[in-house]
Design a protein around this nucleic acid. Sequence first.
DNA 1: TGGATATAATTGATATATCAAATAATTACC
DNA 2: GGTAATTATTTGATATATCAATTATATCCA
Lengths: 141, 141
Amino acid sequence: MDPQQTVFYRIEKAIKSYRQFAQQQIAAVQSGITVDQLLILGLLDAEPDLAQKDLAKMLFKDHASITRMIELLVKRGHLLRSVHPEDRRKFKLAISTQGQQTLAQLKPTILRNRAHALQGIAPAELQQLTHILNKIINNCD
Amino acid sequence: MDPQQTVFYRIEKAIKSYRQFAQQQIAAVQSGITVDQLLILGLLDAEPDLAQKDLAKMLFKDHASITRMIELLVKRGHLLRSVHPEDRRKFKLAISTQGQQTLAQLKPTILRNRAHALQGIAPAELQQLTHILNKIINNCD
DNA sequence: TGGATATAATTGATATATCAAATAATTACC
DNA sequence: GGTAATTATTTGATATATCAATTATATCCA
C-alpha cells in the first residue's frame, strides 16, 4: 500500500528531479522564463502553424492553462498573437524577435540539461525505458 | 531539439496518464477527493507521526502546498490537526473517522489502479524501469 | 438557407505549485 | 541565561491545473 514503494513514485520523482534541475540551469542563464514556456516557444519554432489546442495536446495541458500561459508569454514579449486569417476562432501565434533570442540563448542549456540527466544510461536502456513507459501509457488510456 | 522525441516527454506522459486514470477511477467511487489527498491520508495511516515537512518531502511538494492541502483536508473533515504536545512548532495530524472510512473505501480502487497500469509488464521490466529512473534521479541531484 | 452541431478559445471558480518573506518555537553555544 | 542560528509552519504574490460554463465562429445537413 505504501506509495513510496511503487514505480509510480519513482516516475514522479524522476520527472520532478529533472524539471527542477532544468529550471535551475535555465534560471542561471536567464531568469524569468520557465521550462514550459520554453517548450511552447520550441514547439512553435519547429511548427509555426500550431494552434493553442495543438499545444495543449502536446504538452498535456488544459486549454485554459494554455490560454493563460500564452497571455503571459505575449505580455512578457516572447510571443505575438493575432487572429488567424483563415479561421477567426483561432489565433496565429508567432515568436517575437525577443522570443527568438531567448530560444537561441537557451538552446545549448536545454540540450546540456537533457544530456546531463541521461549520463551513464546506455541507448539500449533508454529504449527499454521508453518501451515500458509506453505500456503504462497504453494501459491507462 | 523536439521535446516530443525525448524520454522525458514519455516519462511525463506516463505519469500524467496514470494520474488521470487513477483520478477517474477514484471519482467513480467517491467524488470530492484527489489522488494527492489520498496519498496524504495513506502516508499518515502508515506512519501517524509524520509532520507536514515529512509529507512535503515524501510527496515532492512545497511546504506551502502541504499547508494548504492539509487545511482543505481538515475543512473537508478527513483530517484533524492539533498542536504537537512535544514541539509547539509542529502539528499533530490525525485521520478522522470519516477519513478512515474514505481510505478503507478507496483502498481496493487504489490497488486495482496500480495493477491495471502495470498490466503486461514483467517484474524484471519493473526492476529495469526503477533502475534507470534512479540513474536519472541521481544525475539531477 | 437556416438551425443543429461541432470546434477554438476564453472566463470563472477553486486548488495546487513555487518563491520569498514572515512567525513562532526550539536548539546551540558562549 | 541570553542571544544567535535553526527549524516548522504560515502568508502573500503570482502562475499553473482542472472543471464547468460561455462566447464566437465554423461546419453539417435536411
